[in-house]
């Protein structure tokens, strides 16, 4: 066991971890930040996506020790300073981009990484980018719409919530 320190959502935090402790485990169990989810054991589902030094990373594929000293952003860090939903989060709510919510943290973090690199993605680019995020509930359509909306683009055929 060693103490690992990193910056998560702007605050410096520390917790004990073994060498084999994954970043996803460190966040959930070490820090009690359960917004990041674990949906598989083969790095396939993307429920665990966080940002490490600005890059989208599946936190189940990285040891906590590798993230020592890094800047980590999780879904808990995506709201506005006043606690209201951030642009991407709000678009997910407006366009019903989530049902059970389990894949949602990973979807939001992946969407944020996509829009950083590609501020106006096409629908095809969004679908392609989400290759590493599985959602069993939504059929993806409203996730795609939400990301289109978050990027300020027209969302064809959507029933937006009131």
């Amino acid at each position: 066991m060693a103490t690992i320190t990193m910056t998560v959502n702007g605050s410096e935090v520390s917790a004990e971890a073994e060498g084999r402790t994954l970043l996803s485990q460190y966040l959930r169990e070490g820090l009690g930040m359960t917004g990041t989810h674990v949906g598989c054991d083969t790095s396939q589902c993307g429920a665990c996506v966080v940002h490490v030094n600005g890059q989208a990373v599946k936190s189940c594929t990285m040891f906590a020790a590798e993230a020592a000293g890094a800047e980590v952003t999780t879904v808990e860090g995506m709201a506005n300073a006043d606690g209201s939903l951030g642009v991407i989060q709000q678009a997910f709510q407006d366009h019903h981009g989530l049902q059970c919510g389990f894949c949602t943290p990973g979807m939001v973090m992946s969407a944020a990484a996509l829009l950083k690199d590609n501020p106006k993605p096409t629908e095809a680019e969004i679908r392609d980018y989400l290759e590493g995020n599985i959602c069993r509930c939504t059929g993806y359509q409203n996730i795609v719409r939400a990301i289109m909306a978050a990027s300020g683009q027209e969302v064809p055929g959507a029933i937006a919530a009131e």
């Binding site: 917004g35 989060q89 709510q93 989530l98 919510g101 943290p105 939001v108 919530a161």
Partner: peptide
């Protein structure tokens, strides 16, 4: 088409 209230907690972790 009311917005889903449960979304807020799911979207914020």
């Amino acid at each position: 088409s009311s917005k889903r209230r449960e979304d807020v907690r799911f979207l914020t972790g």
